[in-house]
Nucleic acid binder design. Structure first.
Lengths: 406, 406
DNA sequence: TCCAGAGATGAATCCACCC
DNA sequence: GGGGTGGATTCATCTCTGG
């Protein structure tokens, strides 16, 4: 068999050598239909990979894809699935084709791979997603449920309570004879949705090999986990730099990779040797790990027209307007900081940022208040938070009232 | 003209009455091509709205849409835009059609509306997004840039620095002759991407009026803000329950709504009357939640833990904490109000609400400042906004510098 | 007027270095 | 040495220029 090999050749011819019903999952990232020639050099400027689009018109392109997609269907097991990474310009034509070949009823999902990326000055919306179409060969496809965590806004109690339908068919919480709510089995989380938030392959990622359109391994891992088990066979007929196969190997799946470019095959072979994967700190730790500002602090910053900074211990934000062409740093005193501590942190960080002016917002009075305005540098401006002022106002009012009561 | 009216009739016939190049934006949520009959009852089981699909085959459906889309293009101004909310099953066919009518080069974005939703877990991925296609009539379309916050992981201080290319063409940070880093202009944030995370209409939300496929107002607001200014005309040829028009009205746009169902028109008219709007729990921090308060005012209110209120000229919000079991009213001085005016409005409104204490936040100095703290009642507490204090600080600094310069 | 190629863009995020 | 922060690098880009 061809398993665990990479083959140089046209996907159509190579797939012909594979018997019927052999493959568990196929991932396709077909060449896009554009008139441009794609070219990119590797990081060390050693190699150059390029491919040009070879089609004169859309029909020709679709005919090319049609032949290969039919082969895909043939080699797929009855329980197998196909994922097609779509081009924005041809995706709808491709979908029409796939509906024909696999049948509308076997269309499972339109997966949205969404990511954040560096922007550029474009009129219109930033293009921050790609579409992957998911078809199964039959109704009886293999599918591993993946669960994700509940969103923070979810009411966990509600999830744990069991529901029944009442006589009118309305869904209500189940209660026992005493009227107590019945708790169901513990839930595993929210089933995976069809919108996947996976970071775009970082410019500095070690994973990068300098191949155009290289996909993050995490994306392919998710796909492979979804529809295959260990030792199942994964096929990528347009493997490019071989990300699919790297992901498959890491997950102990067998793999077959095909590419028409000899360079690509060599590159993919090297990658499979070393198996470098960039861990996404963002996904692992979650966004919250990067956040040192609470919602309330962000609101304060916004109310003074400052941009929040999440990654800096001394500075919480910068004023949007510069003063004397220099940024003005802002800090909001934290619960557990004395004013003095807060000021010194802000001062230290601001020095390295070349800020001339600093603003510190005092949110609470220190228990032992060693506070002395004059001792602070005069380019540090301290403001009392509204909260603090309001609190103080009501304290004073109370004082008055009690005096009056007497 | 037909502006600010809702019309009962077939979109094709009604649009024929509109002249060429009249409309700034069109939003379409066309009837889907399914074999089912859509039916849904309103909350009180009083009314029943339904529409059945009238097409025997896809071609017939596409022909129906084609005629109406051509009319849409005709009535659109040269600077106008069209948004088509797509059905999963027909979206690719619709896109082929739109490419023909508007031209591939006027295809601007495939917007992904993503949301979290409860669903019983079928086999496969949870369907948690919908696609909206965005076409402009010409290259020269109106587009208002919307900026969003930077990612948590972004290194903002670095972004503030200016860059140039060195002799090798590498991009490096710009330094002046002393080797000091040069700071560029302040930044506005990240341009809006094409993936929009907007909560699905909460089934219990007041906003829901019992019409199938009702869309959240926030979604429509975003679309309308993106491509129109105040007083521009928004058209919805399949308005259904009229969400588009409600959003348009809230944003001070003119609107025209068309629907073939008489019930729908009545329903939409009622909605426009009452303008009920959900305060989605998920989007509490969302910008557009409160319409007659500016974003800045909302941020101030939130930063003092006050709940904003709408449509009250005297009071902008109430403190979440009561004082002496009475609400405390809060007002933020508006641009065009003197402090005295603001105080008297607040005072008047607070009396009817039985507030003992009032808080007024001063946002600017009156040109002729007749201001006299002592003349105000002593249950009115006036606080200077951070902005004001900061401005004042820098004014004083400037004074110092110029003194030094002398 | 159109197309090709040069040049500008700009935030996200892992890496590597720094204490 | 580990936690935090400055830096480098990217673009199935985007826009503009010139022939």
């Amino acid at each position: 068999m061809l398993e665990n090999t990479l083959i140089n050749g046209d996907a159509l011819n190579v797939m012909k050598k594979i018997g019927d019903n052999q493959i568990d999952a196929i991932y396709l990232d077909p060449p896009f239909y554009t008139q441009d020639i794609q070219k990119l050099t590797s990081r060390k400027n050693e190699e150059e990979y390029s491919f040009s689009d070879r089609w004169n018109c859309m029909d020709e392109y679709l005919e090319y894809m049609k032949l290969r997609l039919y082969e895909c269907k043939r080699v797929l097991k009855e329980t197998g699935s196909l994922f097609v990474h779509c081009d924005r310009n041809a995706s709808h034509y491709l979908k029409v084709l796939l509906d024909q070949i696999f049948g509308i009823s076997n269309f499972q999902s339109e997966i949205v791979w969404s990511y954040k990326r560096w922007s550029n000055s474009k009129k219109g919306l930033l293009n921050n997603h790609q579409i992957i179409l998911f078809y199964s060969k039959s109704e009886d496809f293999k599918f591993n449920r993946i669960y994700t965590e509940y969103s923070e806004t979810t009411n966990i109690d509600q999830i744990l309570q069991e529901r029944v339908r009442d006589e009118k068919g309305k869904s209500v919480y189940k209660c026992d004879q005493n009227g107590e709510v019945v708790f169901g089995k513990s839930k595993k989380g929210v089933p995976l949705s069809d919108v996947w938030d996976i970071p775009y392959l970082n410019p500095k990622a070690k994973e990068r090999v300098g191949y155009p359109t290289q996909k993050p391994i995490l994306l392919l891992e998710q796909i492979i986990k979804l529809v295959t088990d260990e030792n199942d066979i994964v096929l990528d007929p347009f493997m490019g730099s071989g990300t699919t196969l790297v992901a498959a190997k890491m997950l102990n799946r067998r793999y077959i990779g095909i590419d028409i470019s000899k360079k690509a095959v060599e590159l993919a072979e090297n990658r499979l040797e070393s198996l470098i994967k960039t861990e996404s700190h963002l996904l692992k730790k979650g966004k919250s790990a990067y956040m040192n500002l609470s919602e309330n602090q962000i609101n304060i910053l916004k109310s003074i027209k400052a941009t929040p900074v999440q990654r800096n211990s001394g500075i919480d934000g910068f004023l949007d307007e510069f003063v004397n062409d220099r940024p003005v740093s802002v800090k909001i005193q934290k619960e557990d900081e004395t004013l003095e501590e807060a000021a010194s942190k802000l001062y230290k960080s601001s020095k390295t940022k070349k800020c001339i002016y600093m603003i510190l917002i005092r949110t609470h009075l220190d228990f032992i208040d060693t506070f002395e305005y004059s001792s602070y540098p005069n380019n540090l401006f301290i403001i009392d938070a509204y909260d603090l002022v309001i609190q103080d106002f009501f304290e004073r009012q109370k004082g008055k009232n009690s005096v009056m009561a007497i």
